[in-house]
């Protein structure tokens, strides 16, 4: 009895189906958008930013003093209540949010760009240049940056722009260190040796091979940096050196609230909680982005 099931298959079809391990290709964005943490944190940030940018829709003037309405608790008319000068606290939170978010993001960008360039070049070149860069960095790190900030802010015209630049210029060192150590380990990988062996130039190597490899660490450093910048700005405002009245930032509002902690604690709670939410969100996004940037499973 002949059984067709026991016939030899055509060997020509062998091995033709090359197996690849992931069937669907996932881009960084795809992975990011399928990460529940990232989507939640991202939505929170985007929502906050949009709401802050829509501050002009508020019926209240953020700087309009009204002694009569001073220290009203949250109500339908004043969602977040009013402050010690009778200004609508919700409107002030929105305008203050614009400053805090701008300071956080922009000074982070300055710090990250500077840190990445110094870190990659230093790590890539090694030797004398690396030594020089690192000593320079040590000097910067050994300066008590908070005092520098206070002094500079006192001498320069206090403005949001100046604050962003100064915070940025004083917080790139951590990024540079992280990037440098990552660069040094990636530099020894065989794909970097290959690039050198065919004569790829330094800047091309840095931008094409190094930075994408270092990106996960940069992202984490960046998210921590945003948090730091917002906190530094808060601290400066807390000491009265940041945003100048009547303009507000979350930090300056927290500062003003200190006299009313017992009587009107909501004045501290609203900006405080918002700072917390923003910083947490940036950290969560940083973590998720780092995971999404890693090309392996």
């Amino acid at each position: 009895m002949h059984d067709v099931r026991y016939e030899l298959l055509n060997p020509a079809t062998l091995g033709s189906k090359q197996v690849t391990y992931t069937e669907r290709r996932e881009t960084v964005l795809y992975r990011l958008f399928h990460d529940r943490r990232a989507v939640t944190a991202g939505s929170v940030l985007v929502l906050l930013t949009i709401i802050c940018l829509l501050a002009f829709l508020s019926p209240y003037d953020p700087n309009q003093l009204s002694i009569m309405d001073k220290l009203h608790a949250p109500s339908w008319a004043h969602w977040f209540g009013t402050d010690d000068h009778g200004r609508d606290y919700f409107t002030r939170i929105l305008y203050g949010g614009q400053v805090s978010l701008a300071v956080g993001l922009l000074s982070m960008l300055i710090a990250v760009s500077l840190g990445t360039i110094v870190g990659t070049v230093s790590g890539y070149l090694g030797g004398v240049i690396d030594g020089l860069f690192m000593r320079f960095l040590d000097v910067f790190m050994s300066l008590p940056s908070f005092f520098i900030l206070m002094i500079l802010n006192a001498y320069l015209k206090p403005s949001v722009q100046n604050m962003i630049i100064i915070i940025g210029l004083l917080s790139w060192m951590d990024v540079a260190r992280i990037v440098r150590s990552q660069t040094m380990s990636i530099k020894e990988q065989e794909f970097m040796l290959y690039a050198r062996s065919i004569g790829v130039r330094m800047w091309r190597t840095i931008f094409k091979h190094l930075i994408p490899g270092v990106m996960p660490s940069i992202v984490v450093a960046a998210s921590l940096n945003v948090a730091n910048a917002i906190l530094t700005e808060s601290a400066l405002s807390f000491l009265g050196l940041g945003v100048q009245p009547p303009a507000s930032s979350w930090g300056s509002m927290l500062n003003n609230a200190q006299g009313y902690l017992g009587t009107a604690s909501y004045l501290a709670i609203f900006p405080g909680v918002l700072i917390l939410i923003v910083i947490l969100s940036f950290n969560v996004i940083g973590d998720a982005l780092r995971d999404a940037l890693e090309p392996t499973e």
């Binding site: 099931r5 026991y6 016939e7 298959l9 060997p11 062998l14 091995g15």
Partner: peptide, 14 residues
């Protein structure tokens, strides 16, 4: 092993 097997039989795929 059938997809890589030069001696694969029809039944191997079943």
């Amino acid at each position: 092993f059938a997809p890589r097997n030069p001696y694969a039989l029809s039944i191997d795929t079943l």
